[in-house]
């Protein structure tokens, strides 16, 4: 099965959910399929679900929000750009991508 090499980074307190790891290299499948959608190239929605399932040690509700997205207040960057410019959940993840999750919920 083809896979994608992705670097995930966590900061702003987000790393607390990931065993205090600030950077994790992962291999994820290059395609996903579910009941609703046929086999499709891996997108951010898949990556977030995969991350929650495989990497979040406890309390996934602190990572996951509604509609398959991250919880409100978590900023996401794709290759150092705001994911809001990249299509958010629909962005197709590419081999070698660097995805950053920053919590803004951990006070100031």
């Amino acid at each position: 099965m083809a896979t994608l090499n992705i670097n995930l980074q966590f900061s702003g307190g987000m790393e607390l959910l990931f065993d205090n790891q600030k950077s994790i290299n992962v291999q994820i499948p290059s395609t996903f399929s579910d009941k609703a959608v046929e086999k499709h190239a891996t997108n951010m929605r898949d990556l977030i679900a995969w991350t929650a399932e495989n990497l979040v040690q406890e309390r996934p509700e602190l990572f996951l929000g509604n509609d398959g997205s991250v919880r409100s207040g978590i900023l996401v960057l794709v290759n150092d750009a705001d994911w809001e410019l990249e299509g958010e959940l629909e962005y197709e993840v590419q081999d070698g991508d660097e995805i950053v999750f920053i919590s803004t919920l951990h006070g100031g």
């Binding site: 702003g12 900023l75 950053v100």
Partner: peptide, 14 residues
Amino acid sequence: VMYAYFKKLDYFST
């Protein structure tokens, strides 16, 4: 938060 990220500012978060 984005400013701190792009400027690589050193802050504390728990």
